[in-house]
Design a protein around this nucleic acid. Structure first.
Length: 271
DNA sequence: CTAACTCCCTGATAGC
DNA sequence: TGCTATCAGGGAGTTA
């Protein structure tokens, strides 16, 4: 399930695979993901070239030479591949973008929570559809002070705040769980009850964990794959997500549904 | 403004 | 074996 490190890995791979390639053909095999796919066919992409690919939040954004951007989100089960034309289409590969080097960008997404659109640039140089989202967790803007201020007056659990894309982007269920475990903070804690020191710890641990996960090529839990088909190796380093016992104290972990998401934590180490 | 809820979707797995 | 029920979850939208 692609969160920030997975999107970063995909964007980096796509930067290499798409740069300087010209689009020769666009094929759409399914009507819609999160939004309709037909506009992709009518976007006039043939003849345009890619300049590269970058990441914002959980989106990979591939820049075109006409100033527009192929903007993609991987939902729950999105997988991108760039493979020769000779490789047969898989069952849930919904979009093919043929490239001038004879390879094909393929967007696979069985559960169809993903997103693939050509977008115009907003004032900030990012796609218009991303205007108004929160700060990047790996940026200088994301500090303990920032999180502390954002948490004032918020009654919802801290895990929901950390996963709120209007506050800070790209931290999903897995990395929120890992961050709060490393910080010794229960995911159920009211955001407004957090101390400044706890906010500092949460921000510090979020950055450290996200950076390490990027180094590992992300986390593969079930269906996530990198562009080259490899699995994200951070799965081996998960400490609390999906665990039955706490790796620190061996206490049985607790499981709670917070904001509609399953949340693992250690009731002994996290309070 | 926040918070709480629903919906979208398929595949893996558990239970009978 | 073969069926059905349940669960996984990001983001957008609606309601209170």
């Amino acid at each position: 399930m692609p969160e920030l490190p997975e999107a970063e890995s995909i964007a980096r791979s796509l930067d290499r695979a798409l740069k300087k390639r010209k689009i020769t053909k666009v094929e759409v095999f399914f009507p819609k993901l999160r939004t309709p796919l037909e506009p992709l066919k009518r976007a006039g992409l043939v003849g345009k070239s890619f300049l590269g690919c970058r990441r914002r939040a959980r989106y990979a954004v591939a820049d075109l030479d006409d100033g527009r951007m192929l903007t993609m989100h991987f939902g729950m089960s999105g997988v991108v591949r760039v493979e020769p034309e000779s490789v047969p289409r898989r069952k849930h590969e919904h979009v093919f973008i043929h490239l001038s080097d004879g390879r094909v960008f393929r967007f696979e997404d069985p559960r169809r929570f993903g997103f693939l659109e050509v977008q115009k640039a907003g004032k900030d140089g990012w796609p218009e559809c991303l205007a108004g989202i929160g700060v990047e967790p790996l940026s200088r803007e994301f500090t303990g002070e920032f999180l502390f201020n954002a948490s004032r007056g918020r009654k919802k659990p801290v895990k929901e705040l950390v996963m709120d894309n209007a506050v800070v982007t790209g931290i999903g269920n897995i990395y929120a769980a890992e961050t709060l475990f490393a910080s010794g903070v229960s995911p159920l804690r009211r955001a407004s009850d957090l101390t400044r020191t706890e906010c500092d710890a949460i921000v510090r641990n979020a950055k450290r964990i996200l950076r390490e996960a990027i180094k590992c090529g992300g986390t593969t839990v079930s269906d996530y794959r990198n562009v080259d088909g490899s699995e994200g190796k951070f799965a081996q380093k998960l400490k609390i997500y999906g665990m039955k016992t706490c790796p620190k104290c061996a206490h049985a972990t607790a499981k709670a549904v917070i904001g509609g998401r399953t949340s693992w934590f250690c009731p002994n180490c996290q309070s």
